[in-house]
Nucleic acid binder design. Structure first.
Length: 575
RNA sequence: GCCCUUGUAGUUCAAUGGAUAGAACGAGGCUCUUCUAAGGCCUUGAUGUAGGUUCGAUUCCUACCAAGGGCACCA
Protein backbone atom coordinates (compact mmCIF):
# COMPACT_ATOMS: atom_id res chain seq x y z
CA UNK A 1 0.00 0.00 0.00
CA UNK A 2 2.82 2.32 0.91
CA UNK A 3 4.33 1.84 -2.53
CA UNK A 4 1.05 2.60 -4.26
CA UNK A 5 0.56 5.82 -2.35
CA UNK A 6 4.11 6.96 -2.99
CA UNK A 7 3.66 6.30 -6.68
CA UNK A 8 0.46 8.28 -6.60
CA UNK A 9 2.17 11.26 -4.99
CA UNK A 10 5.05 11.04 -7.41
CA UNK A 11 2.74 11.01 -10.40
CA UNK A 12 0.77 13.92 -9.01
CA UNK A 13 3.97 15.91 -8.59
CA UNK A 14 5.03 15.03 -12.10
CA UNK A 15 1.79 16.44 -13.42
CA UNK A 16 2.66 19.64 -11.60
CA UNK A 17 6.16 19.47 -13.07
CA UNK A 18 7.81 19.13 -9.68
CA UNK A 19 10.60 16.65 -9.19
CA UNK A 20 11.51 15.11 -5.84
CA UNK A 21 13.89 12.32 -4.98
CA UNK A 22 12.44 11.13 -1.74
CA UNK A 23 8.87 11.04 -0.52
CA UNK A 24 8.36 10.52 3.18
CA UNK A 25 5.20 8.63 4.01
CA UNK A 26 4.35 7.88 7.60
CA UNK A 27 1.56 6.77 9.86
CA UNK A 28 0.22 9.75 11.77
CA UNK A 29 0.26 9.18 15.50
CA UNK A 30 -3.35 10.14 15.78
CA UNK A 31 -5.66 8.00 13.67
CA UNK A 32 -7.86 11.05 13.13
CA UNK A 33 -5.14 12.29 10.80
CA UNK A 34 -5.56 9.34 8.49
CA UNK A 35 -3.71 6.10 7.95
CA UNK A 36 -0.86 7.51 5.95
CA UNK A 37 0.46 11.02 5.77
CA UNK A 38 3.09 12.90 3.81
CA UNK A 39 4.83 16.16 4.56
CA UNK A 40 5.98 16.58 0.97
CA UNK A 41 4.29 19.94 0.46
CA UNK A 42 5.98 21.33 3.57
CA UNK A 43 9.32 19.95 2.52
CA UNK A 44 9.40 21.42 -0.97
CA UNK A 45 7.32 24.58 -0.51
CA UNK A 46 10.27 26.76 0.34
CA UNK A 47 12.58 25.69 -2.45
CA UNK A 48 9.97 26.38 -5.10
CA UNK A 49 8.66 29.44 -3.28
CA UNK A 50 5.07 28.40 -2.86
CA UNK A 51 2.70 28.49 0.06
CA UNK A 52 2.77 24.97 1.54
CA UNK A 53 -0.94 24.72 2.13
CA UNK A 54 -1.84 25.90 -1.37
CA UNK A 55 0.72 23.54 -2.83
CA UNK A 56 -0.78 20.69 -0.83
CA UNK A 57 -4.23 21.52 -2.22
CA UNK A 58 -2.84 21.38 -5.76
CA UNK A 59 -1.19 18.04 -5.11
CA UNK A 60 -4.38 16.59 -3.66
CA UNK A 61 -6.28 17.81 -6.70
CA UNK A 62 -3.90 15.84 -8.92
CA UNK A 63 -4.04 12.80 -6.67
CA UNK A 64 -7.82 12.71 -6.79
CA UNK A 65 -7.68 12.95 -10.57
CA UNK A 66 -5.26 10.03 -10.76
CA UNK A 67 -6.69 7.84 -8.05
CA UNK A 68 -8.83 4.97 -9.19
CA UNK A 69 -7.77 2.80 -6.28
CA UNK A 70 -10.66 1.70 -4.12
CA UNK A 71 -8.31 1.22 -1.20
CA UNK A 72 -8.10 4.94 -0.63
CA UNK A 73 -11.26 6.46 0.70
CA UNK A 74 -10.28 10.05 1.26
CA UNK A 75 -7.34 12.37 0.71
CA UNK A 76 -7.21 15.68 2.48
CA UNK A 77 -5.00 18.57 3.44
CA UNK A 78 -4.56 19.25 7.12
CA UNK A 79 -2.53 21.39 9.48
CA UNK A 80 0.29 23.39 7.96
CA UNK A 81 0.18 21.38 4.74
CA UNK A 82 0.11 17.70 5.51
CA UNK A 83 -1.60 15.44 3.02
CA UNK A 84 -3.50 12.71 4.78
CA UNK A 85 -4.73 9.48 3.24
CA UNK A 86 -7.64 7.63 4.75
CA UNK A 87 -7.85 4.02 3.69
CA UNK A 88 -11.12 2.31 2.96
CA UNK A 89 -13.00 -0.43 4.76
CA UNK A 90 -12.26 -2.60 1.76
CA UNK A 91 -8.53 -2.22 2.37
CA UNK A 92 -8.84 -3.15 6.02
CA UNK A 93 -11.04 -6.15 5.32
CA UNK A 94 -8.51 -7.30 2.74
CA UNK A 95 -5.70 -6.95 5.27
CA UNK A 96 -7.65 -9.02 7.80
CA UNK A 97 -8.11 -11.70 5.14
CA UNK A 98 -4.37 -11.61 4.39
CA UNK A 99 -3.56 -12.12 8.06
CA UNK A 100 -5.85 -15.15 8.24
CA UNK A 101 -4.13 -16.61 5.20
CA UNK A 102 -0.65 -15.93 6.54
CA UNK A 103 -1.49 -16.90 10.11
CA UNK A 104 1.61 -17.95 12.04
CA UNK A 105 3.83 -16.36 9.44
CA UNK A 106 2.23 -12.95 9.58
CA UNK A 107 4.78 -10.31 10.52
CA UNK A 108 7.77 -11.96 8.92
CA UNK A 109 9.97 -10.18 6.41
CA UNK A 110 13.01 -11.11 4.37
CA UNK A 111 15.31 -8.18 5.13
CA UNK A 112 17.91 -10.55 6.60
CA UNK A 113 17.11 -13.51 4.42
CA UNK A 114 20.01 -15.94 4.25
CA UNK A 115 22.12 -14.00 6.77
CA UNK A 116 23.87 -16.06 9.41
CA UNK A 117 23.91 -14.35 12.77
CA UNK A 118 25.19 -15.52 16.13
CA UNK A 119 23.73 -13.90 19.20
CA UNK A 120 25.54 -14.31 22.50
CA UNK A 121 23.57 -13.57 25.63
CA UNK A 122 22.84 -14.53 29.24
CA UNK A 123 26.40 -15.61 30.19
CA UNK A 124 25.92 -16.81 33.78
CA UNK A 125 28.89 -18.31 35.57
CA UNK A 126 28.99 -21.83 36.95
CA UNK A 127 29.41 -21.86 40.76
CA UNK A 128 27.57 -18.55 41.04
CA UNK A 129 23.88 -17.76 41.31
CA UNK A 130 21.89 -16.82 38.23
CA UNK A 131 21.36 -13.16 38.99
CA UNK A 132 19.03 -10.45 37.84
CA UNK A 133 21.40 -9.20 35.18
CA UNK A 134 21.41 -12.63 33.54
CA UNK A 135 17.64 -12.59 33.52
CA UNK A 136 17.70 -9.24 31.83
CA UNK A 137 20.27 -10.14 29.20
CA UNK A 138 18.38 -13.34 28.51
CA UNK A 139 15.05 -11.58 27.99
CA UNK A 140 16.62 -9.07 25.61
CA UNK A 141 18.79 -11.59 23.78
CA UNK A 142 16.02 -14.10 23.23
CA UNK A 143 13.68 -11.41 21.96
CA UNK A 144 16.28 -10.01 19.58
CA UNK A 145 17.15 -13.50 18.35
CA UNK A 146 13.50 -14.20 17.57
CA UNK A 147 12.98 -10.83 15.95
CA UNK A 148 15.98 -11.32 13.69
CA UNK A 149 14.64 -14.77 12.86
CA UNK A 150 11.40 -13.13 11.78
CA UNK A 151 13.48 -11.05 9.38
CA UNK A 152 14.72 -14.25 7.80
CA UNK A 153 18.09 -14.57 9.53
CA UNK A 154 19.58 -17.92 10.45
CA UNK A 155 20.25 -17.49 14.16
CA UNK A 156 22.68 -19.35 16.37
CA UNK A 157 22.22 -18.79 20.09
CA UNK A 158 25.42 -18.72 22.09
CA UNK A 159 26.21 -18.62 25.78
CA UNK A 160 29.62 -17.73 27.20
CA UNK A 161 30.41 -18.93 30.67
CA UNK A 162 33.15 -18.25 33.17
CA UNK A 163 34.12 -21.73 34.27
CA UNK A 164 37.41 -20.65 35.87
CA UNK A 165 38.44 -17.74 38.00
CA UNK A 166 38.21 -16.38 41.48
CA UNK A 167 34.47 -16.96 41.82
CA UNK A 168 35.01 -20.71 41.41
CA UNK A 169 37.72 -20.72 44.07
CA UNK A 170 35.47 -18.79 46.45
CA UNK A 171 32.69 -21.31 46.02
CA UNK A 172 35.02 -24.26 46.49
CA UNK A 173 36.47 -22.63 49.61
CA UNK A 174 32.94 -22.38 51.00
CA UNK A 175 32.25 -25.99 50.13
CA UNK A 176 35.41 -27.13 51.87
CA UNK A 177 34.64 -25.14 55.00
CA UNK A 178 31.12 -26.49 55.29
CA UNK A 179 30.96 -29.99 53.87
CA UNK A 180 27.22 -30.21 54.46
CA UNK A 181 26.88 -27.96 51.42
CA UNK A 182 28.35 -30.79 49.37
CA UNK A 183 25.32 -32.93 50.11
CA UNK A 184 24.31 -34.78 46.97
CA UNK A 185 21.00 -36.22 48.05
CA UNK A 186 18.76 -33.44 46.70
CA UNK A 187 18.13 -32.62 43.05
CA UNK A 188 20.52 -30.42 41.06
CA UNK A 189 18.60 -27.27 41.90
CA UNK A 190 19.02 -27.84 45.60
CA UNK A 191 22.68 -28.74 45.17
CA UNK A 192 23.21 -25.70 43.00
CA UNK A 193 21.61 -23.48 45.58
CA UNK A 194 23.98 -24.88 48.22
CA UNK A 195 26.88 -24.00 45.97
CA UNK A 196 25.43 -20.50 45.73
CA UNK A 197 25.54 -20.29 49.52
CA UNK A 198 29.12 -21.56 49.52
CA UNK A 199 30.01 -18.88 47.00
CA UNK A 200 28.44 -16.15 49.14
CA UNK A 201 30.36 -17.42 52.16
CA UNK A 202 33.68 -17.58 50.29
CA UNK A 203 33.11 -14.22 48.69
CA UNK A 204 32.55 -12.63 52.08
CA UNK A 205 35.56 -14.39 53.63
CA UNK A 206 37.78 -13.18 50.79
CA UNK A 207 36.99 -9.56 51.65
CA UNK A 208 37.19 -9.83 55.44
CA UNK A 209 39.63 -12.60 56.30
CA UNK A 210 43.26 -12.33 55.28
CA UNK A 211 43.93 -16.06 55.72
CA UNK A 212 40.85 -17.02 53.77
CA UNK A 213 42.01 -14.77 50.96
CA UNK A 214 45.33 -16.63 50.81
CA UNK A 215 43.60 -19.97 50.85
CA UNK A 216 41.22 -18.98 48.09
CA UNK A 217 44.05 -17.68 45.92
CA UNK A 218 45.73 -21.03 46.46
CA UNK A 219 42.58 -22.91 45.44
CA UNK A 220 42.30 -20.69 42.40
CA UNK A 221 45.71 -21.84 41.18
CA UNK A 222 44.82 -25.46 41.78
CA UNK A 223 41.58 -25.12 39.85
CA UNK A 224 43.55 -23.61 37.03
CA UNK A 225 46.23 -26.32 37.05
CA UNK A 226 43.84 -29.15 37.89
CA UNK A 227 46.50 -30.83 40.03
CA UNK A 228 44.51 -31.50 43.21
CA UNK A 229 42.32 -34.59 43.13
CA UNK A 230 39.93 -33.49 45.85
CA UNK A 231 39.41 -30.05 44.32
CA UNK A 232 38.98 -31.56 40.87
CA UNK A 233 36.26 -33.78 42.21
CA UNK A 234 34.38 -30.90 43.79
CA UNK A 235 34.90 -28.84 40.66
CA UNK A 236 33.52 -31.49 38.33
CA UNK A 237 30.47 -32.04 40.48
CA UNK A 238 29.84 -28.31 41.04
CA UNK A 239 30.24 -27.48 37.37
CA UNK A 240 27.79 -30.20 36.40
CA UNK A 241 25.01 -29.33 38.84
CA UNK A 242 25.17 -25.57 38.39
CA UNK A 243 25.08 -25.95 34.63
CA UNK A 244 22.13 -28.33 34.94
CA UNK A 245 20.31 -25.86 37.16
CA UNK A 246 20.85 -23.15 34.52
CA UNK A 247 19.26 -25.44 31.93
CA UNK A 248 16.12 -25.61 34.06
CA UNK A 249 15.97 -21.83 34.12
CA UNK A 250 16.47 -21.60 30.35
CA UNK A 251 13.62 -23.99 29.90
CA UNK A 252 11.30 -21.86 32.01
CA UNK A 253 12.45 -18.77 30.14
CA UNK A 254 12.08 -20.41 26.74
CA UNK A 255 15.67 -20.31 25.50
CA UNK A 256 17.58 -23.12 23.88
CA UNK A 257 21.25 -22.46 23.20
CA UNK A 258 23.09 -23.90 20.22
CA UNK A 259 26.61 -23.17 21.43
CA UNK A 260 28.30 -22.97 24.80
CA UNK A 261 31.68 -21.30 24.97
CA UNK A 262 33.74 -21.74 28.11
CA UNK A 263 36.11 -19.09 29.31
CA UNK A 264 38.84 -21.62 30.16
CA UNK A 265 38.99 -22.66 26.51
CA UNK A 266 39.31 -19.08 25.29
CA UNK A 267 42.25 -18.12 27.48
CA UNK A 268 44.75 -20.15 25.49
CA UNK A 269 43.38 -19.12 22.12
CA UNK A 270 43.49 -15.47 23.09
CA UNK A 271 46.94 -15.69 24.63
CA UNK A 272 48.39 -17.14 21.43
CA UNK A 273 46.94 -14.26 19.45
CA UNK A 274 48.35 -11.69 21.86
CA UNK A 275 51.77 -13.34 21.94
CA UNK A 276 51.96 -13.50 18.14
CA UNK A 277 51.21 -9.82 17.91
CA UNK A 278 53.25 -8.50 20.80
CA UNK A 279 55.62 -5.90 19.47
CA UNK A 280 53.21 -5.15 16.69
CA UNK A 281 49.73 -4.42 17.98
CA UNK A 282 50.39 -5.16 21.63
CA UNK A 283 53.31 -3.89 23.67
CA UNK A 284 54.94 -4.44 27.02
CA UNK A 285 54.33 -1.94 29.75
CA UNK A 286 55.27 -2.33 33.41
CA UNK A 287 55.64 -6.07 32.89
CA UNK A 288 52.17 -6.46 31.43
CA UNK A 289 51.19 -6.77 27.80
CA UNK A 290 48.83 -3.99 26.83
CA UNK A 291 47.01 -2.58 23.85
CA UNK A 292 47.29 1.19 23.61
CA UNK A 293 44.03 1.77 21.86
CA UNK A 294 44.23 5.54 22.14
CA UNK A 295 46.75 5.43 19.31
CA UNK A 296 43.91 4.47 17.04
CA UNK A 297 41.40 7.10 18.09
CA UNK A 298 39.43 8.52 15.24
CA UNK A 299 37.57 11.76 14.92
CA UNK A 300 33.88 11.27 15.52
CA UNK A 301 34.31 7.97 17.36
CA UNK A 302 34.31 7.36 21.12
CA UNK A 303 37.75 7.73 22.61
CA UNK A 304 39.57 4.55 23.47
CA UNK A 305 42.08 3.88 26.21
CA UNK A 306 44.88 1.46 27.12
CA UNK A 307 43.92 -1.93 28.46
CA UNK A 308 45.91 -4.82 29.89
CA UNK A 309 45.63 -8.07 27.94
CA UNK A 310 48.20 -10.18 29.80
CA UNK A 311 48.98 -9.33 33.41
CA UNK A 312 52.50 -9.03 34.76
CA UNK A 313 51.82 -12.43 36.35
CA UNK A 314 51.42 -13.80 32.83
CA UNK A 315 47.68 -14.37 33.19
CA UNK A 316 45.28 -13.53 30.38
CA UNK A 317 42.61 -10.96 31.25
CA UNK A 318 39.02 -10.81 30.15
CA UNK A 319 40.08 -8.80 27.10
CA UNK A 320 42.32 -11.61 25.89
CA UNK A 321 39.64 -14.21 26.46
CA UNK A 322 37.19 -12.06 24.52
CA UNK A 323 39.72 -11.96 21.71
CA UNK A 324 39.90 -15.74 21.78
CA UNK A 325 36.13 -16.04 21.98
CA UNK A 326 35.62 -13.94 18.87
CA UNK A 327 38.21 -15.99 17.03
CA UNK A 328 36.48 -19.20 18.08
CA UNK A 329 33.07 -17.95 17.07
CA UNK A 330 34.22 -17.19 13.55
CA UNK A 331 36.01 -20.52 13.44
CA UNK A 332 32.84 -22.31 14.54
CA UNK A 333 30.77 -20.54 11.92
CA UNK A 334 33.13 -19.39 9.18
CA UNK A 335 30.39 -18.02 6.95
CA UNK A 336 28.86 -15.93 9.71
CA UNK A 337 27.63 -12.49 8.64
CA UNK A 338 27.22 -10.95 12.06
CA UNK A 339 28.28 -11.73 15.61
CA UNK A 340 26.11 -10.00 18.18
CA UNK A 341 27.06 -9.82 21.85
CA UNK A 342 24.65 -8.59 24.49
CA UNK A 343 25.92 -7.38 27.86
CA UNK A 344 25.29 -4.69 30.44
CA UNK A 345 26.35 -1.07 29.80
CA UNK A 346 29.33 -1.30 32.12
CA UNK A 347 31.16 -3.43 29.59
CA UNK A 348 30.78 -0.95 26.77
CA UNK A 349 34.08 0.88 27.04
CA UNK A 350 36.44 -2.04 27.11
CA UNK A 351 34.45 -3.99 24.58
CA UNK A 352 35.14 -1.06 22.27
CA UNK A 353 38.85 -1.45 22.91
CA UNK A 354 38.68 -5.19 22.31
CA UNK A 355 36.67 -4.64 19.15
CA UNK A 356 39.31 -2.19 17.92
CA UNK A 357 42.07 -4.73 18.49
CA UNK A 358 40.12 -7.40 16.66
CA UNK A 359 39.28 -5.16 13.75
CA UNK A 360 42.98 -4.39 13.29
CA UNK A 361 43.93 -8.07 13.45
CA UNK A 362 40.98 -9.07 11.28
CA UNK A 363 39.74 -6.18 9.15
CA UNK A 364 37.20 -8.57 7.66
CA UNK A 365 35.49 -8.91 11.07
CA UNK A 366 35.15 -5.19 11.60
CA UNK A 367 31.68 -4.83 10.16
CA UNK A 368 30.60 -8.20 11.47
CA UNK A 369 30.72 -7.47 15.18
CA UNK A 370 27.97 -5.76 17.08
CA UNK A 371 27.92 -5.10 20.81
CA UNK A 372 24.55 -4.24 22.26
CA UNK A 373 24.38 -3.06 25.85
CA UNK A 374 21.52 -2.70 28.26
CA UNK A 375 20.94 -0.98 31.59
CA UNK A 376 20.67 -2.43 35.05
CA UNK A 377 17.65 -3.56 36.95
CA UNK A 378 17.02 -1.51 40.06
CA UNK A 379 14.41 -2.22 42.64
CA UNK A 380 11.83 0.14 43.97
CA UNK A 381 12.34 0.73 47.66
CA UNK A 382 16.03 0.02 47.36
CA UNK A 383 15.83 -3.28 49.18
CA UNK A 384 17.53 -5.88 47.09
CA UNK A 385 16.04 -8.75 49.04
CA UNK A 386 13.37 -11.19 48.09
CA UNK A 387 10.45 -12.24 50.23
CA UNK A 388 12.46 -14.93 51.90
CA UNK A 389 14.97 -12.32 52.95
CA UNK A 390 17.72 -13.45 50.62
CA UNK A 391 19.40 -11.30 48.05
CA UNK A 392 17.28 -11.21 44.92
CA UNK A 393 18.73 -13.53 42.33
CA UNK A 394 17.23 -14.10 38.92
CA UNK A 395 16.05 -17.42 40.19
CA UNK A 396 14.36 -16.05 43.31
CA UNK A 397 12.61 -13.32 41.37
CA UNK A 398 11.38 -15.91 38.91
CA UNK A 399 10.14 -18.21 41.66
CA UNK A 400 8.55 -15.49 43.76
CA UNK A 401 6.72 -14.12 40.76
CA UNK A 402 5.45 -17.53 39.70
CA UNK A 403 4.31 -18.27 43.25
CA UNK A 404 2.43 -15.00 43.39
CA UNK A 405 0.59 -15.72 40.17
CA UNK A 406 -0.27 -19.16 41.46
CA UNK A 407 -1.79 -17.58 44.56
CA UNK A 408 -3.87 -15.31 42.40
CA UNK A 409 -5.31 -18.30 40.55
CA UNK A 410 -6.47 -20.04 43.70
CA UNK A 411 -10.17 -19.69 42.97
CA UNK A 412 -9.93 -20.84 39.37
CA UNK A 413 -11.08 -24.15 38.07
CA UNK A 414 -7.84 -25.65 36.76
CA UNK A 415 -5.97 -28.83 37.56
CA UNK A 416 -2.83 -28.31 39.58
CA UNK A 417 -0.64 -29.15 36.54
CA UNK A 418 -2.48 -26.53 34.52
CA UNK A 419 -2.07 -24.02 37.30
CA UNK A 420 1.66 -24.69 37.49
CA UNK A 421 2.10 -24.31 33.77
CA UNK A 422 -0.03 -21.17 33.49
CA UNK A 423 1.44 -19.45 36.53
CA UNK A 424 4.90 -20.12 35.20
CA UNK A 425 4.09 -18.68 31.76
CA UNK A 426 2.35 -15.68 33.29
CA UNK A 427 5.14 -15.06 35.81
CA UNK A 428 7.79 -15.16 33.09
CA UNK A 429 5.69 -12.80 31.04
CA UNK A 430 5.41 -10.32 33.93
CA UNK A 431 9.19 -10.20 34.23
CA UNK A 432 10.03 -10.23 30.54
CA UNK A 433 7.53 -7.54 29.67
CA UNK A 434 8.85 -5.28 32.43
CA UNK A 435 12.27 -5.58 30.82
CA UNK A 436 11.25 -5.34 27.19
CA UNK A 437 8.68 -2.56 27.33
CA UNK A 438 11.32 0.13 27.35
CA UNK A 439 14.28 0.84 25.12
CA UNK A 440 17.17 -1.37 26.14
CA UNK A 441 19.88 1.18 26.89
CA UNK A 442 18.46 2.56 30.10
CA UNK A 443 18.14 1.20 33.61
CA UNK A 444 14.93 -0.48 34.59
CA UNK A 445 13.24 0.50 37.78
CA UNK A 446 11.63 -2.76 38.72
CA UNK A 447 8.59 -2.69 40.89
CA UNK A 448 7.81 -6.22 42.00
CA UNK A 449 4.26 -5.38 43.02
CA UNK A 450 3.56 -3.62 39.75
CA UNK A 451 5.00 -6.35 37.57
CA UNK A 452 2.50 -8.82 39.00
CA UNK A 453 -0.39 -6.43 39.48
CA UNK A 454 -1.33 -7.28 35.90
CA UNK A 455 -3.07 -4.02 35.31
CA UNK A 456 -2.73 -1.96 32.23
CA UNK A 457 0.79 -1.99 30.99
CA UNK A 458 1.94 -5.55 31.60
CA UNK A 459 2.74 -8.91 30.08
CA UNK A 460 -0.19 -10.63 31.79
CA UNK A 461 -2.52 -7.97 30.36
CA UNK A 462 -1.39 -9.02 26.89
CA UNK A 463 -1.83 -12.69 27.72
CA UNK A 464 -5.24 -11.97 29.17
CA UNK A 465 -6.24 -10.20 25.97
CA UNK A 466 -5.19 -13.30 24.07
CA UNK A 467 -7.30 -15.60 26.25
CA UNK A 468 -10.29 -13.35 25.75
CA UNK A 469 -9.90 -13.52 21.99
CA UNK A 470 -9.48 -17.25 22.32
CA UNK A 471 -12.72 -17.59 24.29
CA UNK A 472 -14.56 -15.66 21.62
CA UNK A 473 -13.18 -17.92 18.93
CA UNK A 474 -14.15 -21.04 20.86
CA UNK A 475 -17.65 -19.78 21.23
CA UNK A 476 -17.77 -18.93 17.54
CA UNK A 477 -16.75 -22.47 16.67
CA UNK A 478 -19.41 -23.90 18.95
CA UNK A 479 -22.03 -21.75 17.29
CA UNK A 480 -20.61 -22.56 13.89
CA UNK A 481 -19.86 -19.00 12.93
CA UNK A 482 -16.89 -19.06 10.59
CA UNK A 483 -14.76 -16.13 9.47
CA UNK A 484 -16.16 -14.60 6.36
CA UNK A 485 -15.72 -11.48 4.24
CA UNK A 486 -19.11 -11.35 2.55
CA UNK A 487 -20.58 -8.72 4.84
CA UNK A 488 -17.99 -6.34 6.18
CA UNK A 489 -20.17 -3.36 7.01
CA UNK A 490 -19.07 0.27 6.96
CA UNK A 491 -17.80 0.86 10.45
CA UNK A 492 -14.02 0.76 10.71
CA UNK A 493 -12.78 -0.40 14.09
CA UNK A 494 -9.61 0.98 15.60
CA UNK A 495 -8.13 -2.50 15.90
CA UNK A 496 -8.49 -2.95 12.12
CA UNK A 497 -6.45 0.15 11.52
CA UNK A 498 -3.61 -1.29 13.54
CA UNK A 499 -3.43 -4.92 12.46
CA UNK A 500 -1.80 -4.38 9.07
CA UNK A 501 1.04 -2.36 10.67
CA UNK A 502 2.49 -5.33 12.55
CA UNK A 503 5.07 -6.31 9.89
CA UNK A 504 6.36 -2.74 9.78
CA UNK A 505 6.78 -2.76 13.55
CA UNK A 506 8.68 -6.04 13.44
CA UNK A 507 10.96 -4.73 10.72
CA UNK A 508 11.74 -1.61 12.69
CA UNK A 509 12.45 -3.58 15.86
CA UNK A 510 14.74 -5.84 13.87
CA UNK A 511 16.62 -3.01 12.17
CA UNK A 512 17.10 -1.02 15.35
CA UNK A 513 17.56 -3.98 17.70
CA UNK A 514 14.78 -2.62 19.90
CA UNK A 515 12.12 -5.05 21.11
CA UNK A 516 10.17 -2.31 22.87
CA UNK A 517 8.61 -1.21 19.60
CA UNK A 518 6.88 -4.57 19.53
CA UNK A 519 5.89 -4.39 23.19
CA UNK A 520 4.38 -0.93 22.78
CA UNK A 521 2.54 -1.93 19.63
CA UNK A 522 1.05 -4.99 21.31
CA UNK A 523 -0.21 -2.94 24.23
CA UNK A 524 -1.86 -0.48 21.90
CA UNK A 525 -3.50 -3.06 19.74
CA UNK A 526 -4.65 -5.06 22.76
CA UNK A 527 -6.21 -1.97 24.18
CA UNK A 528 -8.00 -1.41 20.89
CA UNK A 529 -9.17 -5.00 20.84
CA UNK A 530 -10.37 -4.92 24.44
CA UNK A 531 -12.31 -1.81 23.65
CA UNK A 532 -13.87 -3.53 20.62
CA UNK A 533 -14.61 -6.55 22.78
CA UNK A 534 -16.20 -4.44 25.46
CA UNK A 535 -18.44 -2.51 23.10
CA UNK A 536 -19.46 -5.23 20.66
CA UNK A 537 -20.97 -8.63 20.99
CA UNK A 538 -18.72 -10.45 18.54
CA UNK A 539 -20.37 -13.85 18.35
CA UNK A 540 -24.00 -13.20 17.62
CA UNK A 541 -26.18 -15.20 15.24
CA UNK A 542 -28.54 -12.25 14.87
CA UNK A 543 -25.73 -10.08 13.53
CA UNK A 544 -24.96 -10.28 9.80
CA UNK A 545 -21.50 -8.86 10.49
CA UNK A 546 -20.67 -11.47 13.11
CA UNK A 547 -18.61 -13.57 10.69
CA UNK A 548 -16.45 -10.61 9.85
CA UNK A 549 -16.03 -9.71 13.50
CA UNK A 550 -14.94 -13.28 14.14
CA UNK A 551 -12.43 -12.92 11.30
CA UNK A 552 -11.17 -9.75 12.91
CA UNK A 553 -10.77 -11.57 16.21
CA UNK A 554 -8.79 -14.31 14.50
CA UNK A 555 -6.52 -11.71 12.93
CA UNK A 556 -5.95 -10.06 16.28
CA UNK A 557 -5.15 -13.34 17.96
CA UNK A 558 -2.56 -14.19 15.29
CA UNK A 559 -0.90 -10.82 15.58
CA UNK A 560 -0.83 -10.97 19.37
CA UNK A 561 0.46 -14.52 19.43
CA UNK A 562 3.20 -13.80 16.92
CA UNK A 563 4.11 -10.57 18.68
CA UNK A 564 4.31 -12.22 22.09
CA UNK A 565 6.46 -14.94 20.58
CA UNK A 566 8.89 -12.22 19.53
CA UNK A 567 9.06 -11.03 23.12
CA UNK A 568 9.70 -14.58 24.26
CA UNK A 569 6.34 -14.74 26.00
CA UNK A 570 4.05 -17.75 25.84
CA UNK A 571 0.35 -17.53 25.12
CA UNK A 572 -1.81 -19.75 27.33
CA UNK A 573 -5.27 -20.37 25.87
CA UNK A 574 -6.81 -19.86 29.26
CA UNK A 575 -5.73 -18.15 32.42
C1' G B 1 39.94 15.50 35.02
C1' C B 2 38.54 12.59 30.48
C1' C B 3 34.98 9.22 27.96
C1' C B 4 30.09 6.75 27.48
C1' U B 5 24.74 6.56 28.72
C1' U B 6 20.44 9.10 30.39
C1' G B 7 17.33 13.74 31.85
C1' U B 8 9.56 14.12 29.35
C1' A B 9 2.92 14.36 33.99
C1' G B 10 3.42 13.00 41.34
C1' U B 11 5.67 7.88 39.61
C1' U B 12 7.36 4.27 35.62
C1' C B 13 7.88 4.60 30.43
C1' A B 14 6.53 6.18 24.75
C1' A B 15 6.99 9.58 20.65
C1' U B 16 11.43 7.28 11.92
C1' G B 17 12.73 16.41 12.45
C1' G B 18 6.11 17.27 12.09
C1' A B 19 -0.07 18.28 13.49
C1' U B 20 -3.53 19.20 20.05
C1' A B 21 3.82 15.51 23.21
C1' G B 22 0.99 9.50 23.90
C1' A B 23 0.15 5.37 27.63
C1' A B 24 0.09 3.03 32.35
C1' C B 25 0.15 3.46 37.68
C1' G B 26 -1.84 6.82 41.31
C1' A B 27 -6.61 9.85 42.53
C1' G B 28 -12.11 10.43 41.56
C1' G B 29 -16.73 8.67 39.07
C1' C B 30 -19.48 4.96 36.04
C1' U B 31 -19.78 -0.21 34.25
C1' C B 32 -21.02 -7.65 34.29
C1' U B 33 -29.66 -10.61 32.67
C1' U B 34 -23.30 -10.16 26.93
C1' C B 35 -18.03 -14.22 24.49
C1' U B 36 -12.98 -14.56 31.38
C1' A B 37 -14.19 -7.39 35.37
C1' A B 38 -6.48 -9.73 35.28
C1' G B 39 -11.55 -5.93 31.35
C1' G B 40 -14.18 -1.36 29.38
C1' C B 41 -15.83 4.10 29.58
C1' C B 42 -15.11 9.25 31.58
C1' U B 43 -12.24 13.27 34.48
C1' U B 44 -7.12 15.09 36.08
C1' G B 45 -1.27 16.57 34.75
C1' A B 46 5.05 16.99 31.70
C1' U B 47 9.79 18.05 27.42
C1' G B 48 16.52 20.00 33.27
C1' U B 49 18.72 25.29 31.90
C1' A B 50 20.62 28.72 28.02
C1' G B 51 21.76 29.37 23.05
C1' G B 52 22.03 27.57 17.72
C1' U B 53 20.40 24.98 12.92
C1' U B 54 15.25 24.47 10.53
C1' C B 55 9.11 26.43 7.45
C1' G B 56 8.86 23.28 11.99
C1' A B 57 13.08 20.59 17.60
C1' U B 58 11.35 16.04 22.97
C1' U B 59 14.37 14.51 18.65
C1' C B 60 20.13 17.38 15.50
C1' C B 61 24.55 20.83 17.27
C1' U B 62 27.16 23.77 21.47
C1' A B 63 27.64 25.06 26.61
C1' C B 64 25.96 24.36 31.50
C1' C B 65 23.37 21.58 35.46
C1' A B 66 21.88 16.63 37.47
C1' A B 67 21.92 11.06 37.77
C1' G B 68 24.30 6.27 36.48
C1' G B 69 28.54 3.65 34.42
C1' G B 70 33.68 3.35 32.77
C1' C B 71 38.96 5.06 32.80
C1' A B 72 46.07 -0.69 33.58
C1' C B 73 47.02 -5.93 35.56
C1' C B 74 38.84 -7.96 38.29
C1' A B 75 34.96 -9.60 34.91
Amino acid sequence: MQKEIKKLIKDALENLEIEVSDIVLEHPEDLKNGDYSTNIALAIAKSIKRNPRELAEKIVEQILRLNVDKNIEKVEVAGAGFINFHLSKKFFAKSVEDILNTADNFGKNDSLSGKKIMVEYTDPNPFKPFHIGHLMTNAIGESLARTLEYSGADIARANYQGDVGLHVAKAIYGLLKDEKLQDKTGDHNLQSSNIGKAYAFGSDAYETDENAKKEIDEINKKVYLRDDEKINEIYNWGFKVTMEAFEDIYKILGTKFDFYFLESMMAGVGRDIVKENTGKLFEESDGAIVFKAEKYNEEGHPKLHTRVFITSQGLPTYETKELGLTEEKFKTKPDMDLSVVITANEQMDYMRVVAKAISILHPEYKEKMLHITHGMMRFVGGKMSSRKGNIITGESLLNDTRADVLGRMSGRDFSSEEKDKISSDVGVSAIKYSILKQSIGGDIIYDFEKSISFEGDSGPYLQYSYTRANSVLEKAQNENILPDFENIGDEIFEVEKMLYKFPEVVLRASEEYEPHYIANYLIEISRAFNSFYGNTLIVNKEDKLSSYKVALTYAFSFVLKNGLHLLGIKTPKKM
